[in-house]
Amino acid sequence: MRHENIEVNSGLMILLILTVISIGGLVEVVPLFYLNDTIEKVDGVRPYTPLELRGRDIYVREGCYLCHSQQIRPFRDEWLRYGHYSLAAESQYDHPFQWGSKRTGPDLARVGKKYSNEWHVQHLVAPRSVVPQSIMPNYPWLLERDLDFSDITERLKALRKTGVPYSLTEEEYKANVAAYGKEMADWLDINQAQDSLFAQARNDYDGLPNRITEMEALVAYLQVLGTMVDFSQYDEGYFVEFR
């Protein structure tokens, strides 16, 4: 094909440009879908419960990911500050994942259980009341607005279609009981979604026992981040094998 033929035919040129620039992306991304060891085999990683999932939706809605990443990279400084590096397995049920690459605030991949619920509520309503040098905006409306969970069933069904193991049929429910135990399997059952949301909200994450606020969901989500895998069960050499 002659140079001139491409240069004078813009349709053909666009097609060829797209082909060339997609090669780099395809070579880096496509193999991850079929390589055996992309996702580490670890116990404990489960889908988010309905309350945590709504918290995650609020996290995305408020744009938390614009300043907070959720991916601890395998470097010594990050290990010392944040803890164990993130595993691919830990975000396998995240759609879309919240890895991010912009850290205006700290990484949140292992923030779960690090601070108390009361601290999170105080910090989200008025960050500078506990961290004077913080530049994070205030989110007071999280405590004022009641959580909308009217469409929780539809949200779980949509994620189920992408392969997240929320159970709809008896068979799927039994598989979840085997994988996560009965209590968690109930919480991951689409047919009991609202009940499980109410049940978990009894933990009173927002300090308002009579209400289920958006704060309730967000704090429930933050408190589970990075806590699903029990790293004391594994020899560190085990994770090296997967890369």
Binding site: P74, F75, R76, W79, Y85, D235, E236, G237, F239, V240, E241, F242, R243
Partner: peptide, 19 residues
């Protein structure tokens, strides 16, 4: 790992443990 020396092929995770 736990005071035992190990050798593995190079990757970022092994490099981290080395560091």
């Amino acid at each position: 790992v736990d005071g035992k020396a190990e050798e593995s092929r190079w990757n970022t995770r092994a490099k981290l443990l080395h560091d």
